[in-house]
Structures are given as structure tokens and as C-alpha cells.
Design a protein around this nucleic acid. Structure first.
Lengths: 230, 230
DNA sequence: GGGACTTTGTGAACAAACGAACAAGGTCGG
DNA sequence: CCGACCTTGTTCGTTTGTTCACAAAGTCCC
């Protein structure tokens, strides 16, 4: 396998799934796991698991499988999860507030360190233990709190400006929840979560399904299993 | 282009982005748009736009561009957005409650028609104008309200069972927010939204970035623009 | 009405991702 | 210490997706 270890994007996106799966396996006191079993639990193909893991290095033992603890250490290191990544949530509306309350972040090494909003009537008020700060404070927050990741939870109209300001303040990792196209410079990383898009894609396939269902019924075709991972 | 019109998955995932972009363009009273301009607004390559749109049929006019209204009609039809898709949210905890309140769904043709929870102390109480129903009521809800899409917003442990129950009740489109691998039969559609995963992917690239940044500085390489869409 | 100009639609080259298959390498019982 | 057995790591053909480049098709000005 590539000694340069340039890990393909598709693999990077699967590593967190393996990580979570391995944590569950570890909790059940299993010390070793085969690619076959891991594949089953992670809902992917076994060959893919082996190839993905091989990018991390050769940490398996032929005839035995992978050492769970060792794999977890390597994977955490590779994903950069050996440190905390303080997060700032920009936009404390419906969604932003929910994310701030969610709590699932801090557990996993992504503490919510700051809440930011552009609305002067919100700035200065408290929410979930944080005083809401102004957009203009971003550079200071990055400096003081070491904000590494910005979450955009504003309406679509404000998203691009928020992204620009985040980048200007030195935040190079951005997660966009706003239903808008956002462009960032090449040195920054942007990922998006788009609820409407997901529903519309489901709608697309759901529409065909009605045709497909009657067709399947006619032909007596049975359902094979299909997976996805959450 | 393929006359069978089997639209590639990657294209399906971009159609909602074009759709949203076209709605904005329409709001500005533009009647026609070129692939170049649409590509810019949607944050993709112009050739990709043309190829994607060609799967819908030949709706452009050479030398002119695409008729915005016409394209919107065709695209909505293809995405199955000419009807409403009633949604059931399963799991009225932090996230489920936020989604129920969000409101951005109903606007776009995905009305929240039911809230469901397995917790007996929640069942029967009101939330956001809905009486929370029991998981066992799912088949009845599908029958009465025509639930077409199920949103899983439960803790990880319950996700697979909820999915099974949704499918058993006849819901074949599922959006999973729970941080767990969920498997559905082949005739069902599953998509996932995984916040921890997104943050961990950002962490992966963020980690390299510190190395990359100093390197870039040394070499005096400037940033090219990069896009993603939300 | 003709020619310059614009923009689409698609063929073809390229790139990324996938999955089957298998040799290499290691375990473990006897 | 050997041979049967197991599981990894990797090669290879296939599929899917992206991008370039250009002919075809239309507009619009003169």
C-alpha cells in the first residue's frame, strides 16, 4: 500500500464509523476483531475495511485479525482526536440553540466554547452557560479560546459572510448547516449538513419506489439487504 | 445522453442544490440562465451542470441557456416535489424536539405529520402542536396520515429497532440522525446525518492543516478557491 | 438572409472508488 | 517442527464520477 499514506477522502469519511464501532467492540471486552466482523458491524464490505485500515499502516495480524486497542489508538491519532477541538456555534436561533444544548459534542472532544450571533438583541444574553458574543469578537475568541471549528447555524442569507469572517479570524474548519452554497479558500475545510437536500433525495427515490414496489410485487422479487451508517 | 435516464446518484444529490439556486435566480426575475452562471452559483463545474441537466432531458437552448421556470418545473417533477411528503419524527429528545420546531420542513413540502416516542412518560403529551404517539402506533399513523418519510432522532441504541418498525409499517424512506449503523432492506431508502462524523472528518484535515500552513507559508503558495454547498 | 458569436450536449480521456480474488504471512494443534 | 488453517494486505478488472474539448445548434446584428 502507498507508503506516502495519502488517505483517500472516501476512507477518511469511513474512519469515524470504524472508530465508533471499535469503541462498542472494546466495551464488550473483545481484544481482537477480524475485518469480516468489523465490516459487518460497520455496514461495509470486508475488503474495503482491510484496504481502509491498511492506509493507517499494517496493524493487523494475519490469521488473527486486528488488535482493538491498538487500532483505536492509531485511528484516534490519525483523526487528530488526541486533543480537544473547541467549537464556536455561529447563529443562536432554533438550530444553533439545539446544537448548543445537544451535549453530544463535548463528550467526543468537540467542546462548545463559544456562541456567536449577529443580532444585537441576543448579544450579551446568556444561553446554555455561555454569554452570546458578537460576530466582531470572533478574532478575540479564536485567540482566547483557541476556537478550531466554526459551525454555521444562521439563515442562508448570512452564511457566506459568517464563513468569510470565520476564515478571516483564523478558523479553517467549518461545518455549514445553512441551506446555502458557501465558498471558502483552498486552505480551509468546509463540510455541510443539509436537511432539505437529504429529504429531497429521499423524495426522488421514494417517488420511483411506488412504481418499483408494484413491479417487484408482480415479479415476486424479494428484498436484499442494503446498508448505510449513521 | 442515456435515453433510459437512469440518473446517477451523484447527480441526484446535486439536483436539490440546483433547485435552490434556481429559486433564488427566479426570485430576481431572471428568466434564463447559462450553465456557466448556474455552476458559479451552485459552486460546481459548468460541464457538470450541463451533464447533470441533460439527464433531465434537453431543456436548454444553445446560444441562450436554460429557461429558469421550465427547468424548475422539470426538476421539481423529477425530484417528486409536486406533492407533499408527510414526515414522522421518531424520538422527541433534544434533537427530535429541535427538528419538530424547526419549521423549515413544512415550507419545502415535508410537513411534520407525527411525533413518535418509545418513552411512556412522553407518549400522550403535547409538543409543538402534536400529541406524541407510541411506537406501536406507527402502522396506524402511516395509514391515517400517509407518512412517507421517517426521521430517526433517537439515541444510538434504539435506532435499528426504530428503522425496522418504520419499514414494517410501510415507511420506505428513512433519514437517520442517530450515531449508529442502521441496515434497511433493499427496497427501502436510507440516508444519514452524522454530526460527530462530520466534526471528526474536519478534525482529520484540521490536524494536517497546521503542518500544511507552515509549509505553504514557506513556499509562498497562495490559496485557490474551493467550494462546497449547504 | 448571412455570418459572427454564444452556449448547449456529448464523446472521450482521466481519476477515484469498489469489490473479487488470491498470495503472503502468521497462528496453532499435534 | 510441521502442516492445516485462518486472515491480512494487495493486485487487478470494473464501475462510477469528473473534466476537457469540440461539434451541433441556435441567436442576433447588420
Amino acid at each position: 500500500m502507498d507508503r506516502k499514506r495519502r488517505i483517500p477522502e472516501a476512507t477518511v469519511a469511513r474512519l469515524p464509523v470504524y472508530l465508533r464501532t471499535l469503541l462498542e467492540v472494546q466495551a464488550e471486552a473483545m481484544t481482537t476483531i477480524s475485518s469480516e466482523r468489523l465490516a459487518e458491524l460497520a455496514g461495509v464490505n470486508a475488503a474495503k475495511v482491510r484496504k481502509d485500515l491498511s492506509y493507517l499502516g499494517s496493524y493487523g495480524t494475519r490469521g488473527v485479525g486486528y488488535d482493538v486497542d491498538h487500532l483505536l489508538v492509531q485511528m484516534s491519532r490519525e483523526l487528530g482526536l488526541t486533543r480537544d477541538w473547541p467549537v464556536a456555534i455561529v447563529g443562536v436561533g432554533n438550530l444553533g440553540a439545539a446544537l448548543a444544548n445537544y451535549g453530544g459534542f463535548g463528550d467526543r472532544g468537540f467542546p462548545v466554547a463559544a456562541l456567536v450571533d449577529a443580532d444585537p438583541s441576543k448579544v450579551g444574553t446568556m444561553f446554555g452557560g455561555h454569554k452570546i458574543r458578537d460576530l466582531d469578537d470572533l478574532p478575540a475568541l479564536v485567540e482566547e479560546l483557541g476556537i478550531a471549528i466554526g459551525i454555521i447555524a444562521t439563515p442562508a442569507a448570512g452564511a457566506q459572510e459568517v464563513a468569510d469572517r470565520l476564515v478571516a479570524a483564523g478558523v479553517t474548519s467549518i461545518l455549514n448547516f445553512a441551506p446555502a452554497v458557501v465558498i471558502v479558500p483552498d486552505h480551509a475545510q468546509l463540510r455541510k449538513v443539509d436537511l432539505a437536500l437529504e429529504l429531497q433525495v429521499l423524495s426522488f427515490y421514494g417517488q420511483r419506489e411506488s412504481i418499483g414496489a408494484s413491479l417487484r410485487e408482480e415479479l415476486g422479487v424479494s428484498a436484499e439487504s442494503k446498508e448505510s451508517v449513521g
